[in-house]
């Protein structure tokens, strides 16, 4: 009983993330299948409660690059999403919404469980590759006059596929899964995905951040082992600061595995009590 509760506690964010991911997906599916008006469309662009437009800012950017004038709905929608992640949520899209996250997390889990993961067996790819792909996608969108990444995105193919019918789209999803399983740990989400790259670049100022308390840290390095973007945890055991890199996806796995309460979610820019007293 106690152990059971401990397991739940140790996976509280993971469970919450899966619930959020799946229920958003189900709401979209119901939007198409039953005409529910809670979430209509898909992650590229949608309408919340039949009023509020939402849109993928990266997809919108590609449409702009393709050279077209867009209607206000999609621009407003893109700005809303952009503002939410860049000012509040951080790169939470990747870990709380994106359906590919479930695929790659599963690949990662299998990789570690089966002992497939050995550092020296990995194909090493620079984590900067995603920024190259991001830049390239915008240039190509301009050159071929069509949103370049939207034509090959496994994220859209999976999400659209689940709502509207998959076709051969599953092949792209299997490709991502196998790549993450056999080739590189966190290969797609942490190295290649330009949407992740886009959010990494723009979510630096966000308020919700993981906070590290170096005084409590016992240097067990559980957090670094579990983190899909290790480089953001440079401060572990060194400095008590917020994880400020835009590459952090706010998945909270580090918080869960920490046995010393040295990592927690916090709000940046919160007025400091001491400062207030001094003032």
């Amino acid at each position: 009983m106690n152990e059971n509760r401990n397991f739940l506690y140790k996976h509280r964010y993971l469970i919450a993330r899966r619930i959020v991911q799946v229920s958003i997906l189900l709401l979209y599916i119901a939007g198409n299948a039953y005409g529910w008006k809670i979430l209509q469309g898909n992650l590229s662009s949608s309408r919340l409660f039949d009023v509020i437009p939402l849109a993928d800012p990266y997809a919108t950017l590609q449409l702009f690059a393709a050279g077209t004038i867009l209607a206000t709905d999609v621009i407003v929608g893109a700005l809303i999403i952009f503002a939410f992640y860049s000012l509040i949520g951080g790169r939470a899209f990747c870990s709380w919404i994106c359906p590919i996250n479930m695929v790659t997390d599963f690949a990662n889990w299998l990789r570690v469980k089966t002992g497939l993961h050995k550092d020296e067996w990995q194909l090493r790819i620079s984590r900067k590759t995603r920024y190259w792909i991001l830049g390239l996608s915008l240039i190509l969108s301009f050159v071929v006059a069509a949103p370049a990444f939207e034509f090959i995105s496994p994220i859209s193919m999976l999400h659209r596929g689940l709502i509207f019918g998959m076709g051969f789209g599953f092949a792209a999803v299997v490709a991502v899964f196998l790549f993450d399983l056999f080739v590189t740990k966190n290969g797609w989400c942490g190295h290649l995905c330009p949407l992740g790259g886009f959010y990494s670049l723009v979510t630096k100022p966000s308020v919700i951040r993981v906070k590290h308390d170096a005084d409590k840290c016992t240097l067990c390095m559980n957090c670094k082992n579990v983190c899909p973007e290790k480089q953001v945890l440079w401060m572990i055991g060194k400095e008590s600061v917020f994880v400020s890199s835009g590459e952090c996806i706010n998945c909270a796995r580090c918080i869960e595995v920490c046995n010393d309460d040295a990592l927690n979610f916090g709000l940046r820019y919160k007025p400091n009590k001491e400062e207030k007293e001094n003032a």
Binding site: G31, N32, G35, Q40, G41, N42, S44, S45, S46, R47, A55, D56, A59, T60, L63, A66, G67, T68, L70, V74, A145, A146, P147, E150, S156, R160, I163, F164
Partner: peptide
């Protein structure tokens, strides 16, 4: 059309 369509499927729904 190819430049503008964001592939959201709201027309289909």
């Amino acid at each position: 059309f190819v430049k503008k369509c964001i592939k959201c499927g709201m027309c289909v729904e």
